[in-house]
Design a protein around this nucleic acid. Structure first.
Lengths: 222, 222
DNA sequence: GTGAGTTTCTATACATGTAAGAAAAGTAGC
DNA sequence: GCTACTTTTCTTACATGTATAGAAACTCAC
């Protein structure tokens, strides 16, 4: 009823852990033992707490990973020299994001977050959108163009990271190998032609080529 | 008189469940109750077995989902009329894959599988690779081009599906909303300019636009 | 028949994320 | 002091994927 006019001191039980502490501890665990070892229980013991206490500072484990990625971005994203030429500016900014993310491929699950807008990454987004506008696109189309670039970039990282992980854990012939072994050259001539080279070809890193093609296409569309 | 004990070549205890039965039961569960209800235990009871018995027909739950997607692809992927013109053939084939996958967005986790090449999807891959070759690319570059298209397509589906799921479960302002509310117009002018329109803009379905840009760029690259 | 070999199935157990609710540790007003 | 309220922490419990060990059900050689 008589709600205090709120001199706003800290009310309630004082917290013993903070988000920042959690993220720092999580980073230590990931750096030292790998992301697989990062569990809510492990993190809780690391900071001398209990698993459920963490949930007052973080909605769920996914959000913890998002914060972790954010922290990583803040620490490692350095703004590169961006060229003036719009096309190259877009490519440079996207490539910088890609390079940073590809270096910590454990965030794959997190990458599907809608935009992955850590505040420290926004500068790169700005470069991309601005570059597209400078290249002649309307602001609306520039946002769409940025999204296309993000889809391509995130997809590349997620798919390549999963493939790499699978290569480590799996042994024996892949499902893909079986499928390619049974190709009918009459029905699928092109695929038969490249069947043996498929694995090495798809293992190559052609992110930049695809990115350039996409940016070219976006800018060419008036 | 039908010979009851057919000359059984198979050694060991005869199986009581099969992969096909598993996939069919899994499909029933997913169709009727949603993918969240598809658990190994639920599937086991559905076919009158035990959870661990399933693991003799499937390596893990992920593989079950891959089989489910495969089954889905076989049933729903219909080969469309593809134009002769290379560029349009590539776009049509990619769009067909995209449309089919976007209709069952529960396979998001599975999409990161390296290629997700169900045998029934290979025809579409053939169209894309062949279209790129017809457009002037070498077979190697055509494979790379196909991969770029796949990255873009899978990324789009994964990110949009996650965003849609989040929209259902979350309430309250997004992290993104907070970030955009705190934009500094001096440092990030373009983003500030479109900040209010960001949510609707990124909610639009612009897959085809991006795809066309990407294909254009791939074909224009010499 | 019996026993060996092979494959499939079952029982049990564990680590994980996290829901639900009780308890603790503060502040504010009396 | 005490009570009311608020916020954080702790306890307990559950569903899930799956590892492990062994039991069960079959064929084959004898």
């Amino acid at each position: 009823m008589p709600q205090p006019p709120a001199p706003r001191r800290t009310l309630g039980r004082p917290p013993r852990i903070s988000r920042e502490e959690m993220v720092a501890a999580a980073r230590r665990i990931v750096d030292a033992e790998g992301v697989d070892r990062l569990t809510m229980r492990r993190l809780a013991t690391e900071i001398g707490s209990t698993p459920m206490a963490l949930y007052h500072h973080v909605r769920n484990k996914d959000q913890l990973l998002v914060l972790l990625l954010d922290d990583y971005a803040v620490r490692t994203l350095r703004r590169p020299e961006v060229p003036d030429e719009p096309r190259e500016r877009v490519v440079a900014a996207a490539a910088a994001i890609h390079e940073a993310l590809a270096d910590c491929p454990w965030i794959v699950e997190v990458l599907t977050a809608d935009d992955l807008m850590s505040a420290s990454a926004l500068w790169f987004v700005e470069q991309i959108v601005d570059g597209l506008v400078a290249g002649g696109l309307s602001p609306e189309r520039a946002v769409h163009g940025y999204r296309a670039i993000w889809y391509y970039t995130a997809g590349e990282i997620m798919i390549r990271a999963t493939a790499a992980r699978r290569r480590r854990t799996d042994d024996g012939p892949t499902y893909r190998d079986q499928v390619f072994a049974a190709l009918d050259p009459d029905e699928l001539p092109r695929l038969s032609e490249v069947a043996q080279r498929w694995a090495p070809l798809t293992a190559e890193d052609t992110y930049l080529d695809g990115l350039r093609a996409l940016v070219d296409g976006l800018l060419a569309a008036r």
